[in-house]
Amino acid sequence: MTVTTKGAYEPLTESTAIKLAKELNFFKEGSLLSCHEIGDGNLNLVFHIVDENNTGIIIKQALPYAKVVGESWPLTLHRATIEGNYLKKAASLVPNLVPKVYYTNEALAITIMEDLSHLEIARSGFIKGKDYPLLSLHIGEYLAKTLFFTSDFGLNQQEKKKLQQLFVNPELCKITEDLVFTDPFFDSETNDFEPELLSSIEDLWADQTLKREVAKLKLKFLTNGEALLHGDLHTGSIFANEIDTKVIDPEFAFFGPIGFDIGQFFANILFQSLTRTSENRKMVTNHLHQAWDSFVKTFTQLWNNHSVEAFTKTPGYIEHVFSETFKSAIGFAGCEIIRRTIGLSHVADLDSIFPDEERIFIKQKALSLGKKLILKAEEIQSTTDIEKLLEQVLKEKD
């Protein structure tokens, strides 16, 4: 392959990624470069290139198909452009919480960005028992600022409509619509689960009340273009250490309901909470409280100081917005927990549990928790209520 930034799309290899980095002059002439493909997701290639001084860059390239299925599941390469545009927009709002973007190329479907290898994927760290004391405070700030300033509360309605045009993302939204809101609740061939879970899953499929509530959540996802969402905000999309947090992988970005990103983060904190003993579970569940409190505090400040909507001065309106956002976040979290337990794409928090009996036990609890979050979304008023529900589920006898 002859690498050129003006050439036709072709998947990179480690050697051609190095050639591309040299062509774009990211390193001094004569530098000794090494490259490793480090992508562990389903949709992209990710190359980490460093020189002899350990100065590095990341080249991310979208694949025209989903790796988990193969070339029989084609995907648009335009998602790389959406990701680059999202990161640039987020950098104008939360520059300390997203990686720097150095270069994008729509034809090659690549984004070249800051090397974050000094940080760790939050999911991996949590599984190892680590904690990131500032992570949830940062995520609350990130959510508040990215959501407020792309909503009708913080962005002129005409400017918002123009921005929406940049983030029309039908193919990746379809993945969410199917894999989060539809397939796990029916006997779909995309589902993937242990046979020991079948009885519980069949009960879930037969629960018409549950399905009705999921249908409402799916409708909200389909129709409520409230703000620009990350669209896939889980702990595998967050780099962190004790002091820094960086959100990555926003290729699912689109305009949707404000509660969706919040619910995704809640769900992934709950995955890790399910795996912890009672003695150290609190360290993880604290992130629920801190993230929501940080979101509310920051969003309120923005509401009071930067609102462009006249009705934000109306008493009681912000409380209504928070109530509706929290309620939908709880429901979305429940859907995410169920789909990551029995759907096509799992999480290492659960799948890495051994022995098998313990993994099945925890997955049973995950299904119970997800179902209760969906059905009790109207009743759950605080993150403390979420924590109480978690404890109740863990104490239930099968």
Results as ranks from 00 to 15, higher is better:
Glu357Pro: 03
Leu166Gly: 09
Glu279Tyr: 01
Thr341Phe: 00
Ile82Pro: 11
Asp115Arg: 07
Ser294Arg: 02
Gly125Tyr: 02
Leu302Val: 05
Val214Glu: 11
Lys388Ser: 12
Ile337Tyr: 13
Leu350Ile: 05
Leu233Glu: 06
His118Glu: 10
Glu226Ala: 09
Asp152Tyr: 15
Leu233Ser: 09
Ala253Ile: 09
Lys89His: 05
Leu32Met: 13
Gly263Ala: 09
Val94Phe: 00
Gln364Ala: 08
Val69Arg: 07
Thr277Met: 00
Glu23Pro: 14
Gln392Pro: 12
Asn105Ala: 07
Glu242Arg: 15
Gln208Lys: 08
Leu77Met: 12
Lys19Cys: 04
Glu106Val: 13
Leu12Arg: 07
Tyr9His: 10
Thr285Ser: 04
Leu219Glu: 06
Leu20His: 14
Thr314Gln: 09
Thr16Gly: 01
Gly140Val: 11
Phe27Ala: 06
Ala122Phe: 03
Thr111Ile: 13
Val98His: 03
Gly140Thr: 08
Glu106Asp: 12
Gly56Pro: 15
Leu108Glu: 03
Ser31Gly: 02
Lys88Glu: 04
Phe26Val: 04
Arg339Asn: 08
Thr150Gln: 06
Phe185Ser: 05
Lys60Ile: 11
Leu389Lys: 02
Leu222Thr: 09
Arg212Glu: 13
Ile386Trp: 04
Glu29Arg: 09
Tyr65Arg: 01
Ser278Lys: 00
Glu14Gln: 14
Val68Glu: 09
Thr277Cys: 02
Gly84Ala: 05
Glu391Leu: 12
Glu202Thr: 07
Ile262Tyr: 12
Lys397Ser: 07
Gly259Phe: 14
Leu166Asn: 09
Thr76Glu: 10
Ser151Asn: 11
Ile243Trp: 12
Asp349Glu: 03
His320Lys: 14
Asn191Glu: 03
Ile243Phe: 10
Ile110Ser: 05
Asp261Gln: 10
Gly316Cys: 11
Asp187Asn: 13
Gly263His: 07
Ile59Ser: 02
Leu143Pro: 10
Gly225Arg: 15
Glu10Lys: 14
Glu226Lys: 10
Asn304Trp: 04
Ile362Thr: 06
Ala348Ile: 09
Trp292Gly: 00
Lys145Asp: 14
Phe254Glu: 05
Leu63His: 04
Glu37Gln: 15
Val94Ser: 02
Asp261Pro: 15
Leu163Ala: 14
Asp178Gln: 03
Thr104Asp: 08
Tyr142Cys: 02
Gln208Leu: 11
Trp205Pro: 14
Asn304Thr: 03
Gly125Glu: 00
His306Val: 01
Thr275Gly: 00
Arg339Ala: 10
Glu171Cys: 09
Pro315Phe: 15
Ser92Val: 06
Phe265Asn: 08
Cys335Thr: 06
